[in-house]
Amino acid sequence: MTSLDIAEVAEQAGLTPSALRFYEKRGLIEPDGRNGLRRTYHPDVLARLALVTCARSAGFTIAQIARFLTATPQDAELRAHLVDRAKQLDEDIARLTRMRDGLRHTATCTHEPLVDCPEFKSILATPEAKAANTAA
């Protein structure tokens, strides 16, 4: 398979060459070699960078990603952390979904002001708040 130079990888991954060098310093990716003075990478690095980018957008630190990339099935502490982080992501997804749905509603809502719309408030309410209102 043909190696990709750093500029090609940066372009395809949507990152800067300096980000690639930073990730390399932190052990997240490895160069395949050099073409003159330019680093080259195996095309598989794009999948690794997609994982790193996804993890970064989910709030993982570089150190956490580096640890995850070297983890083994026997790493019970890491597995427990991943379960906790997955729960946090579920909460984030639920919150963002409520916000998205609320914005979609307000795009066509005629209530004045929009933020006082009962349906909008209901959409944004957490399941716990809805349960408390039902119990009251």
Results as ranks from 00 to 15, higher is better:
Arg21Cys: 12
Leu69Asn: 00
Glu8Arg: 07
Pro113Trp: 11
Arg79Val: 13
Ile62Asn: 04
Ala76Tyr: 06
Arg21Lys: 10
Ala131Thr: 15
Glu11His: 14
Leu114Phe: 04
Leu4Asp: 05
Gln12Trp: 02
Leu78Ser: 11
Leu124Ser: 04
His81Ser: 14
His105Lys: 04
Gly14Asn: 03
Arg48Pro: 02
Gly102Glu: 07
Val115Phe: 14
Ala135Trp: 05
Val45Gly: 06
Leu37Ala: 15
Leu103Gln: 09
Ala94Asp: 12
Leu37Cys: 04
Tyr23Ala: 06
Glu112Pro: 10
Gln12Glu: 02
Pro113Phe: 02
Arg100Pro: 02
Ala86Phe: 06
Arg100Trp: 05
Ala71Met: 14
Gly59Lys: 10
Ala125Gln: 00
Leu20Thr: 11
Pro113Thr: 02
Thr53Arg: 14
Ser122Lys: 15
Leu114Gln: 06
Ala107Pro: 02
Val45Pro: 00
Asp84Gly: 14
Ile123Ala: 08
Leu82Met: 15
Arg21Asp: 09
Ala80Glu: 15
Ala80Tyr: 08
Pro113Gln: 06
Ser57Arg: 15
Arg39Ile: 01
Ala47Pro: 07
Ile6Pro: 07
His42Ala: 08
Gln88Trp: 08
Ile6His: 09
His42Thr: 02
Phe60Cys: 02
Asp75Val: 07
Val52Ser: 08
Phe68Ile: 09
Asn35Ala: 15
Val9Asn: 03
Thr108Tyr: 04
Gly36Lys: 03
Ile65Trp: 05
Gly27Ser: 02
Thr110Asn: 11
Asp75Phe: 10
Cys54Gly: 15
Val115Lys: 14
Leu46Cys: 01
Pro43Leu: 00
Ala13Gly: 00
Leu15Val: 14
Thr16Cys: 00
Tyr41Lys: 01
Ala7Thr: 12
Lys25Tyr: 03
Val9Cys: 01
Cys117Pro: 11
Ala71Trp: 05
Val9Ile: 07
